[in-house]
Nucleic acid binder design. Sequence first.
DNA 1: TGGGAAGAGAGGGCATAGGT
DNA 2: ACCTATGCCCTCTCTTCCCA
Length: 779
Amino acid sequence: MRTSAAQPHGLPNRHPLQTTQVDEPMRDYVQPIGRKLARHYGFHPFPGRKDPGVVQAYIRHYTQPDQTVLDVFGGGGVTAREALILRRRAIVMDINPVAELVTRASVLPVDLEKLDSAFQTIAREVAERILAIDEMPAAEIERTLGEYDLSFLSGEIHTLIRRGAARGIRHLIDLHDPRQLLGLLLLRDAIRAEADDRIRLMLRVAFSHTLKYATRMFKAKRTGYWAGDSSVFLHFAYVVPETLSYKNVWLIFEHVFANVRKGKAEAQRLIGDFYQEGETFSFIRGSALNLQQELAARGLPANEFADYCITDPPYAEVIQYPLLFSIWYAWLDVEAPALEQDLTVPTRSESARREGISEEFVRKLTASIGAISRALRTGGWLTLFYQHSNLSYWKAIVEGAGEYDLRYVNLVPQPQNVKSFAQVKHPFKAIAGTLMLNLRKLPASVHEAIYGRPENRILFPSLHKFAELELQRVIVEYLGAPTDVIAYHVIPALLNPNLVSGKVQEAVDLIELIREQDLEPLGAEHVPNGEKDLWMLKPGVEIDPALDFYDRLRYHLFAFLRRQKEATQLELHATASEMIASEPHRMQTKLFELAPLLSEFAELQDGNWHYSPEARRRAVQMRLLLARSSADELRPVFFQADTALLPLRMQGLSELSSRYSQAVDRPLSGEYRTLQNLLVAVLTTIRDRFSSQLTSVSAIGPLAEGIVDLRNLELEDLSLGLISHSSIEDAVQLETTLAKEVFGRVFLNSGIMFTGLVRPLEHSSWLRTGNHITLLGQE
DNA sequence: TGGGAAGAGAGGGCATAGGT
DNA sequence: ACCTATGCCCTCTCTTCCCA
């Protein structure tokens, strides 16, 4: 046991580094906000976009305004935009010149009136001529094309991105129908004539966006004029469908320009005058491998300048970015980046595939992480998006990072709002989201003092380790777990990140193996009142420190009390102290009462705590309702409640909880969590504001009858038990207030449109008829 | 060992309804 | 007229699995 007698009261100081960074990593997933922001979606179809809500939440958590956020694989520029909007300085890097074009264009201040008049000028110049191409005889098109220098499209398309029907296509010029080609040339020259650099930049973004529709790779759908997609974004390859989906270049440009303008206006409104080139924003075109050199060449500080880095590295050869963008490089007349400087390795050799990991890629990725580490201040965080089924890369990243003082802290599974058709088709097998890898730049000793992890320990070097952690998480979070709960939680977790590729039996065997090693049932003599037996961790098993500290402490006390059946306050304090002492950095948090933790599985009688299966059941149901949701901040509010009304509310909530867990199986799971969070917010607010007037909150109507589509949740579905001497007038008044204040407030806070909830008058008439409100499970 | 079947993969956009 | 949420639709290549 570690002690720190040198410090007063035996409490160690905060770790010796005076950093401005938070010690706590992000621990929970973020509610994705999807594609509704015009500044990200519609502005440019740059592939690999990340959910802006996730990026926002991470930047907010890890930084303060005016601190510096770094992204060395900037891509479409989400990090840059969100950082500036949040008033953080952004330094963004990418090797791809198109990434620079899109990112710069989205954050630069642009005079929108000038932009509009520039568009009008171009329209006057070429709109009619481009529209007339559709009526032009083929021979005349050929003759006109002959006047242009088309050598910029003579480049050969790499075989790695040429697929299927596109095998008949060899050069970039083959990708266009002659009419598209002529239209694009006219448009390009008109844009080139624009004198204002920033306006021209915006027009070039619209032009590059136009390229998505103006190639033979675009396949239109039967419905709608713009419906369809280009194979570049659909398959990350050049695929040409059998039938040509031709659209006139001017009509495309007009359509696309409107979207670009809309996204620009939105970003500009939010960034305002915070943008200052070189001051609050820098874009560095170059390879992440050369971060320090590129910064130094621009007279920028190269080391220890960034407070936080969030980035989404390419993963090996999944997408061949340097090859995929060749059509943009040609049309935008920008220099293609050198292949050897790119991280992705353009190879598909059989041997590389069998080995499952490309050494060259790992070497480059590790070097990039080294460059990030040098750029970070000590104590700074690095968040990596990890979306790859091959765990070898994961291991390589974590091991490699340690060499640069970047140490693994934790990992958060992050669901995405946007579901691929693969996910819709195979909800339990396809990758359901991203893993967020949080690392921190700290010397090993400090890192261990804070996070209690030996530096050489890799969290998930194997499937076995992953399964072990998931199993521990279920047992620790839910205070022991019966067999079926283990199966229902751990197996999907194993299947979800695609670690076992549908090999359910293998996962089951693995769980069985771990169970034999690490778990034990407590035995019938310890199970009171016919309670289902719970699997517990064997006493010697070390609980993974990546799990939440309070969860672990609560579990520790739970396991102790379940063995002892009853214990004095003193014994429990001794047990807790022993565990806290093994993690001295925890002592700095203010001394807390054990009672709230204990009350989740025990009752106080005659000065002794007695194990109570009923208390555990209630607590677990609450945790299931609140578990792993962004409503985490609400959790303490619930458990702090010290009023006689709590049991009744718990009853209603428990029932709701079980209804909702049935609803999870329905194809709603995307919306399910949002609505669950919403409901928790509603109920919490009701509790906070109206507890003096209410005796209970429970579910009625469709909610009480069975599985219900949560999207149809309405005020009537919540039953409010009024104190007995309330008059009807009081009730109506209360409802009106609820509808206006509670649901209105939920709308404001969560940003979720839920106007259907506000129907006070109808609900009032329901009350006036003298109906009794039925509490669930009672008369 | 060969052949066939099935699985899986860096999402995205338009149409529509219903609201403001 | 405009905004927002929701519904629905869309690919082809390559690997792995299964069975003869």
